[in-house]
Design a protein around this nucleic acid. Structure first.
Ligand SMILES: [Mn+2]
Ligand SMILES: [Mn+2]
Ligand SMILES: [Zn+2]
Ligand SMILES: [Zn+2]
Lengths: 138, 138
DNA sequence: ACCCTACCTTAGACATTGTCTAAGTCAACA
DNA sequence: TGTTGACTTAGACAATGTCTAAGGTAGGGT
């Protein structure tokens, strides 16, 4: 994630304490936190950080392509720092656990030209749903 | 959609004016309205119908498997009466238009056993994103 | 046809998630 | 070290969805 800070410096970002803390919370490639979860963890490191700044910083990281926005449940969006390796998600319907998964083949290839209705198709999101081992054993 | 009313009667649903109107708004297999859009159209047919009843009725139709809930944009959920033919969605990133599409192959099959982490995988949602012909011509 | 009553509907309060504004603060550059 | 425009903040506001208590009614029983 220090890579991330370097990239942001290159883009003439001001490196404020607040932005450092948000980046630190997102460190680790397999987290999928909501904005409020990120805010709570950020407050533990920098008590005076505001909700607005967390939302602002996350929005900027998404616009820069450094973080992905994931909506797996129609509730709060989740923020995914694993933006540099294409992947999809497997979600437990019971406890909400999210795993990164890597399907075989190109997901875009599954949409035939006759099903594209003249769209220029540029991306695809796949969400697999099921029960995780913990929740499956009732 | 009269099929739907018959099925609901069979399940001992009370056929109230409000429920008839919600079903009528959802008639047609290729609509993807938000709850508020459905409420606005329902009010045009039955002015005193409340927001709570629309939400209640939609939730019940989803629980019965007669309507699908679709979250394509992280904003309001959309309600899809085309619940009896498996399909996926193609969304215009600019204007939000949604088309039903039918990918080739079984979308579930693209997730190898080694990527399932012990989950019992029961479903998959695929959202293709791009620009519709109207929006593509700037 | 009329009652009952369990189920349904309603208005509006409340909850969650996200956006915006105006005023104060500070990181980076000179 | 001073300057300045970008950044942060508290809190109001907005959008979407949930809940409750009170009143209404569909449909079975008579
Ligand atoms: Mn991920
Ligand atoms: Mn559909
Ligand atoms: Zn689980
Ligand atoms: Zn479009």
């Amino acid at each position: 994630m220090s890579d991330l800070l370097a990239r942001l410096r290159d883009r003439h970002w001001r490196l404020t304490a607040q932005r450092r803390v948000v980046a630190q919370v997102l460190d680790g490639d397999h987290v999928h936190f909501t904005a409020d979860e990120i805010h709570a963890r950020a407050v533990a490191l920098l008590p005076e950080i505001s909700r607005a700044t967390v939302y602002n910083t996350l929005g900027e990281l998404v616009a820069l392509g450094e973080v992905l926005e994931v909506s797996t449940d129609g509730r709060a969006k989740r923020y995914d720092p694993n933006a540099h390796h294409a992947h999809q998600h497997l979600v437990c319907e019971s406890c909400g656990t999210i795993r990164d998964v890597h399907p075989s083949g190109d997901p875009l290839g599954s949409l035939p030209a006759t099903e594209r209705y003249g769209f220029s198709v540029s991306g695809v999101e796949v969400t697999y749903r099921g029960l995780c081992p913990n929740c499956a054993q009732k």
